[in-house]
Nucleic acid binder design. Structure first.
Length: 278
DNA sequence: ATCGCAGCCTGTACGC
DNA sequence: TGCGTACAGGCTGCGA
């Protein structure tokens, strides 16, 4: 669920909530695979007494640097949620990690499907270095992107989801960007004209910025859906143009939105506005 | 290089 | 009401 805009929203809210500068007084993990290869005991020992120095985002990772030179990488995967709550509040059965802070609060990690991962490492670049460019950074240049696209024979949809190609896009924003760029998700990257590639470059940035401005996308009302650290929902569901709008009129041309499977992922597009190659 | 699949988990929606 | 099935916004490892 959480993609770049959702993770960025979480990071900003944790910063605004004053997580930076806090000392971790106790760390507990209740689901071992989440912190593997560390054991809960080693995890607790390495975090206790550490001060949070900074909270940043790289792709869909939350990057927390600590005072002992270690870095905590948190990946929310499908249903991960972070919250800042008062110490001692009842823990629900999906909260798997609790960091107690020196100000009477706790940073809690909740994850219904348990896919999320916490990685405590002194060499975060071993993981972050494998990621492609940040689409919102000035290093994501149009010319470079066009030549990268030209070199790939993959369909656009799976290519946009490939974190080594471009970092931070997930299923929602991939569909949104392709709709915005008027490109069929099954188009092969190397067949794009320069004009089409430029359109995609701009569209990617637009839909991600809108997602951040709207503080992320929260679909549905279930407990597993995206929520911000303060417990509030995102607002970008109102800003979606195609995702999960199967059968509803395209907001550009009025024709019904199609849903297909591409690269084993559900994919939404307008067959009229986003014509297949040919 | 690229594709497709299984697996990791739980909850929800839907058909009968 | 109950039961079975399909599906979900991510990612990894494997074989082809």
């Amino acid at each position: 669920m959480p993609e770049l805009p959702e993770v960025e929203t979480v990071v900003r809210e944790l910063r605004a909530g004053g997580l930076s500068g806090r000392v971790i007084t106790r760390a507990r993990a209740f689901w071992k695979p989440m912190i593997a290869p560390l054991t809960p005991a080693a995890f607790a020992a390495r975090l206790k007494g550490r001060r949070v120095q900074s909270i940043q985002r790289r792709a869909k990772y939350i990057v927390i640097t600590l005072s002992n030179g270690a870095t905590l990488l948190i990946h929310l995967r499908m249903t991960g949620q972070l919250s800042l709550t008062r110490e001692g509040a009842p823990r629900d059965r999906h909260q798997h990690i609790v960091l107690r802070l020196d100000d009477g609060r706790e940073l809690r990690y909740r994850d219904t499907r348990k896919f999320g991962r916490w990685i405590l490492t002194r060499a975060p670049d071993r993981i972050l270095g494998r990621l492609g460019p940040e689409p919102l950074s000035r290093h994501f240049e149009q010319k470079e992107f066009i030549s990268q696209l030209r070199a790939r024979r993959r369909q656009l949809k799976p290519l946009l989801l490939d974190q080594a190609f471009l970092a931070g896009i997930g299923n929602i924003y991939a569909d949104e960007a392709l709709w915005d760029a008027r490109l069929h998700p099954g188009r092969v990257a190397s067949t794009l004209t320069a004009t089409e590639a430029r359109r995609l470059h701009g569209a990617i940035r637009r839909v991600l910025l809108r997602g951040i401005r709207n503080m992320g996308t929260t679909l549905g009302h279930g407990q597993s859906n995206f929520q911000r650290p303060g417990g509030k929902r995102g607002q970008n569901q109102a800003g979606l143009n195609v995702f999960r709008r199967t059968g509803l009129p395209c907001l550009r041309c009025g024709k019904p939105i199609c849903r297909v499977i591409i690269g084993q992922r559900s994919t939404h597009f307008c067959a009229a506005c986003q014509p297949a190659a040919g």
